[in-house]
Amino acid sequence: MMGKRLWIGLIVTVMVAILIYVSYGMVNVGKKETYHSVAVVLGDSSHDRWNAFKEGLEQGAEENHIHLNVVFTGVLQSQEEECTAIRRELENGAEGLIVQVIAEESPELFEETVGETPTVLIENDMGSEDEYTTVAADQGEIGAAVAQSVLSGESGDMQGLRIGVLAGNQSMHSQRKCLESFLDAIEGSGAEIAWIRSEEEWDRDAAAGLLHEDAEVDVVVALDNNATECAVTFLQENSDISWRIYGEGRSEKAIYYLDKGSVKALVVPGGFYMGYRSAELMARKLKLKTSGEKDEKAETHVDFLTVTRENLYDKNVEKILYPIVS
């Protein structure tokens, strides 16, 4: 009798347990995923060069249940300024950060500001010692690709060619790597590097009206989007100058002047992929943080393509170059 009662009790207990489990499942059906708030800090965030990145970021965020807050910034002048923006976002409840590091002058400050917040760096990393997940094009390869586009664009006739280099933000080690890689690739081609100017030097010399002295070059190589735009602007403003510009960038202006012929070749990193992938990685970081696990450092290299006037309207190129922005 006791045995029988035990059996029935056991069966009833199992059924009740299943009932509770299933009821819990039923209650949770259709329950919306928890959205995490992530702040995106970019230098000059409203610049159109970020369009493809933002599009990818938004699509990635939507699929990974992330609420994005792209911080409106002008041109960030220092890391301190950037850290202030980050701090403000964290105070406003940001659970994660996607950051374009604009300088490396005080990595400690950055580390202190970011703390344990899940962070994904884009476009630049903080050097080989850092522990941050990075989504960026390999700047070394970019530099080499720009050099290659020069070699192709000049039909291999490099002997005596004078090259001026707008090296971008040389306070960033990734930009230094890009320059280094470019110089390595161009070395031995017979071309002469007439001058190399960092972003800071360019701005200073432009303000002092000293740039005309350097106009006597055949080719100007611009190693980031800003540099390309500066070179194009300078070229447009000075009709007596006949530079052939090779550069890196993906802004509408840079592409427009590529189409116009002012820019001979442009190395364009995959902005959409960079945005999408950073959202994905951020989602993974947030998930791991929620479950108390620590995410490992990951480096994702973004592909790039070299665009010339000839292939600008190729189907595969225009799909990358001109994002369909809703």
Binding site: E55, F272, Y273, Y276, K319, I320
Partner: peptide, 10 residues
């Protein structure tokens, strides 16, 4: 709806 992702190979 995922045109850009298809173009980007995602």
């Amino acid at each position: 709806p995922k045109q850009d992702q298809i173009y980007a190979g995602i």
